[in-house]
């Protein structure tokens, strides 16, 4: 059903989905997803609102487990391990798959404590280790210069863009293999957007990044691969329409629906 244009092979993949389906209660939200997500590259998920791209993203770190009545069918793997296999601990999975949300959501704690949160969960107690992690993570998130002398300030006192970078630093502090970003730039100012995009480019060589975005320009600008999702009929499940290298998808889309979407004819 889905069209593939020089999509990643199984060997290149960090994450794979095979005939993946998802239900919210009785509502069949996603159907028949087959895709390999390339290791240490940036992949963007695009599509109109309600096309299930965020839902699929939240399946990768099993955040949907927190919603009652959700159910999956089919297979999804991370580095060859079945994510949904019997007995897999979603808590452990989420330590390897970090996530950035649309709305910056720092904890109502100090900047330092926000970044130290993850390492503390993993049992890091030494003050010097924590200091190192906090400093390096904030530097990696390009926030260190702005906050280095006010680490005890409440994270919520920062501007929206700074909050989002704090959230990124918070994730980097646990060095996940995969970084999921759910429209990370839609609630922050343009200057911060470019800072976040630069950061993604810096991280990509060592981290598998998946970003859900509404901005076609952003997808074209930063991602190596692009996946287009669509729910054609309201009430019916959404699915993957076209997937492959970003250049190919944007310059020569095969499916007419993909072309309509990226040229702005709907959505």
């Amino acid at each position: 059903m889905s069209v593939y244009q020089s999509a990643p092979t199984l060997e290149q993949a960090a994450i794979t989905a095979k005939d993946f389906n998802f239900w919210y209660g009785d509502f069949h939200a996603l159907t028949g997803l087959d895709l390999n997500i390339a290791k240490n590259a940036i992949t963007s998920f695009i599509g109109p609102s309600g096309c299930g791209k965020s839902t699929f993203l939240r399946c990768i770190n099993r955040m949907n487990d927190l919603i009652e009545g959700t159910r999956v069918e089919g297979a999804m793997t991370l580095d060859g391990n079945d994510i949904y296999a019997e007995g897999v601990d979603p808590v452990d999975l989420r330590r390897r798959v970090g996530m950035i949300f649309q709305q910056p959501n720092p904890f109502p704690k100090s900047i330092y404590e926000n970044v130290a949160f993850g390492p503390r969960l993993q049992g890091v107690t030494s003050k010097s280790d924590l200091d190192d992690i906090v400093e390096e993570s904030l530097k990696r998130a390009n926030l260190w210069k702005e906050v280095s002398n006010q680490l005890n300030k409440d994270g919520l006192a920062l501007s929206g863009g700074q909050q989002q970078r704090l959230c990124i630093a918070r994730v980097l502090a646990v060095q996940p293999d995969v970084l999921l970003m759910d429209e990370p730039c839609s609630a922050i100012d343009p200057t911060s957007v470019s800072k976040v995009e630069d950061l993604m480019a810096e991280l990509a060589p060592e981290m598998t990044i998946i970003i859900v975005t509404h901005s076609m320009q952003q997808a074209a600008r930063i991602s190596d691969y692009t996946a287009f999702f669509l729910q054609e009929v309201a009430g019916e499940p959404a699915t993957l329409i076209e997937y492959g290298q970003t250049d190919a998808i944007f310059t020569s889309p095969v499916d007419s629906r993909t072309e309509d979407y990226i040229t702005g004819r709907f959505g």
Binding site: M63, N105, V174
Partner: peptide, 27 residues
């Protein structure tokens, strides 16, 4: 308390109990 900070905590790999006593109760 906004749902977002709970999600953030779970996404960091915190268990339910860790989320409750490190994030929710302090907030």
């Amino acid at each position: 308390i906004p749902m977002g900070i709970r999600e953030a905590s779970y996404a960091m790999g915190a268990t339910k109990w860790q989320t409750i006593y490190k994030v929710v109760l302090p907030a």
